[in-house]
Amino acid sequence: MPILVIAEHDNAGLKAATLPAVTAAARIGAHSGAEIHVLVAGSACTGAAQAAAAIAGVAKVLVADAPHYAEQTAENEAALAVQLAQGDGAYTHILAAATTHGRNMLPRVAALCDVAQISDIVAVESPDIFVRPIYAGNALATVKSTDVLKVITVRTTAFDAAGQGGAAAVEAIAPGPDLGLSRLVGRELTVSARPELAAARVIVAGGRGLASSENYHRLLEPLADRLGAALGASRAAVDAGFVPNDCQVGQTGKIVAPQLYIAIGISGAIQHLAGMRDSQVIVAINRDAEAPIFQVADYGLVGDLFKLVPELTEALG
C-alpha cells in the first residue's frame, strides 16, 4: 500500500518544505517498498502539480482542483485527505511537513481517522518506529505506532530535500465537499529580498540585547547583506516588535539548521536553543561571558554588540 505526502504550495508552485517530507516518506518506503503519492489540493494549481510530479521518487500526483482549496484552509483539506485515507487505495502513512500548514491541518486527519499523530519526526527507524524531540529538544523519544495508519509531520531540517528529475503520473481526483467552516479574510506575508529562514545557509539572529527595532535593523541588516543571510530573532525581540513573528527561532517558532548561525544579544534560553542547536556552526556575540548561548557556540565573542557588530560587518566588507 502506498504512502501519501500532502503538498504545501501556493497553487503556482510547491513550497520547499514539501521536499524533506518526501524524503522522509522515501525512508519509510525503503523499508516497506511502498510507492509515494503526493496530494496537491488547490485551485488552478497546475503549476504546483507539475512541480510535485518532477520530484524524484514520486510515483503519482493526485490533484484536487477546486475553489475551496485555494487557500488550503485546514477543514476542507483535511476532509479530502481523510477520504483518500479511507478510500480504495488506502494508505499506510500520511505525511506533511511540520510547518504551520502541516501542524494546522494534519491532526484533523489523524483524529477523523481515529489514529494518533506523530509530530515532528527527525528519524525513521522502521515503517512504524520514529524518533521525535520532546521537551524543547532536550530529549529524543523513540516511539512505535500501533495504529494501522500512521499520520506524521516531518521536521524539515532533519531530512534532505528530495531531488528533481521525477516524472510522476498526474491524476485529477474528484474534490471533496466545501464544508464552509472557515473563511480567509486576508493574509499579510512579509516581503523580503532575503533568503527564507528555513532555507538560509547563513542566519543572523538578534535578541533583546539590541534594545530597539531601530538598532536591530541598523546593525543586523548590513551584516546580513554581507553574508547573504536571513534574519532571525529570539522571542523577546519579536515580542518587543523589532521584527515580525515569523522571524522567531525556537521551540515554538521556526526550527532552523543553517551552516552558520550568528546569535547577537541573545542569552540562549532553552526555548531558543531548541530552534537552532542543530546549526552546523554557531557564533555568539554577547557581553555576558556567562550567557548560556556560549555553551553551544563554536565561537564565542564576549563584548558589546554595539561595537562588535559594526566591526564584524566592516571586516567582512
Partner: peptide, 11 residues
Amino acid sequence: EIDGGVETLEM
C-alpha cells in the same frame, strides 16, 4: 501566526 506572516480567518 503562520510561516511567512499572519492571516485572518473568520468563522
